[in-house]
């Protein structure tokens, strides 16, 4: 069955799958943010820390758009990396 939209599929996930999916999302975004952070100079790093510690959503949006215009590409790459790490662990747990 081909799923034309991700939304119905997301809603069809079991609670366990949603919970695990949320943890995977957290792992991916953590790695994405680190890559963005490490690409900045010291002043930029301080700025990023300050902005994301604040509650100013607009500033956060502006920051991502300005300093991480390739956010979606990085996300895609890191999703692939995390996918690989998890499946390798599954292999270890089930094979020699």
């Amino acid at each position: 069955m081909a799923i034309k939209s991700a939304k119905p599929f997301l809603e069809n996930l079991t609670e366990e799958q949603k919970r695990l999916g949320s943890r995977i999302f957290d792992l991916i975004v953590g790695r994405v943010l680190k890559r963005v952070y490490l690409s900045l100079d010291e002043s930029g790093k301080k700025n990023m820390e300050t902005i994301f510690l604040s509650d100013d959503s607009k500033e956060k949006e502006k920051f991502v758009k300005k300093y991480a215009p390739d956010f979606k590409e990085i996300f895609k790459e890191e999703a692939g990396e995390i996918n690989g790490e998890i499946t390798e662990e599954i292999l270890k747990k089930t094979t020699t």
Binding site: S5, A6, K7, F9, L10, L13, Q17, L20, G21, I24, F25, I28, K60, E61, V64, K65, A68, F71, K72, F75, K76, A79, I82, N83, I86, T87, I90
Partner: peptide, 20 residues
């Protein structure tokens, strides 16, 4: 935040969940 639409991120994440 990224202005690319949540759907795209959903597809990528779901691909991972489904595959794993």
């Amino acid at each position: 935040v990224t202005g690319v639409g949540a759907g795209l991120f959903a597809i990528w994440l779901l691909k991972d969940i489904y595959f794993i």
